[in-house]
């Protein structure tokens, strides 16, 4: 299990090293290899979130779909915010509501809350076990199930397939 952790960190660090350096010369590759190896060994038992990704073709396919859905929601949310800000009367109706999530993996929960923060009119204030507290700029429903259906489900359905 620890070996798998270290291998995941090593791969991520190597990719980032190539992105920073932007070259594939032999000396750059050698230095990056040694560095990533040392850091992966040091942080192997502290970092256990990177290998929760299921390395199957289905997971990669759904990652692509997730990115598309996410960017569409990001653009939609910005247009909504722009419309609210530009209206002189400021049509807002804020409040904090509860929702539920069924995800267990830590990485998936972080991606879920980040996505909720960046989508139309919602902001994650806190997360505790399976309850998410969400600040909603236009409260549409106080019921926990309806709110879950409206805010969480569209991301959760895809994340379940990626992180299990």
């Amino acid at each position: 299990m620890k070996i798998k952790n270290q291998f995941a960190i090593f791969i991520v660090l190597m990719i980032i090293w190539f992105l920073i350096n932007n070259s594939f010369k032999l000396e750059v590759i050698a230095v990056g290899f040694v560095l990533s190896f040392v850091i992966a060994i040091i942080f192997g038992k502290r970092t256990d979130v990177l290998n929760e990704f299921k390395f199957t073709p289905t997971a990669f396919f759904y990652t692509l779909i997730y990115l598309l859905v996410f960017f569409w929601e990001l653009i939609k949310s910005n247009i909504q915010v722009a419309l609210i800000v530009l209206k002189p009367s400021l049509p807002i109706n804020p409040g904090i509501v509860k929702t539920r999530t069924i995800l267990k993996s830590k990485m998936a929960r972080m991606i879920l809350t980040n996505s909720i923060t960046l989508t139309p009119g919602t902001l994650t204030v806190d997360i505790e076990k399976d309850i998410l507290y969400i600040h909603w700029i236009n409260v549409e429903s106080l019921d926990i199930d309806v709110a879950t259906e409206k805010i969480v489900k569209k991301f959760e359905n895809i994340l379940v397939k990626i992180y299990g």
């Binding site: 960190i9 991520v12 660090l13 980032i16 850091i39 992966a40 942080f43 502290r46 970092t47 256990d48 979130v49 990177l50 830590k106 990485m107 929960r109 972080m110 809350t113 980040n114 994650t124 997360i127």
Partner: peptide
């Protein structure tokens, strides 16, 4: 918990 997870990814980077 979110900050904890994010820091686990960010510190090695």
């Amino acid at each position: 918990e979110i900050l904890n997870t994010a820091s686990q990814v960010l510190v090695p980077i």
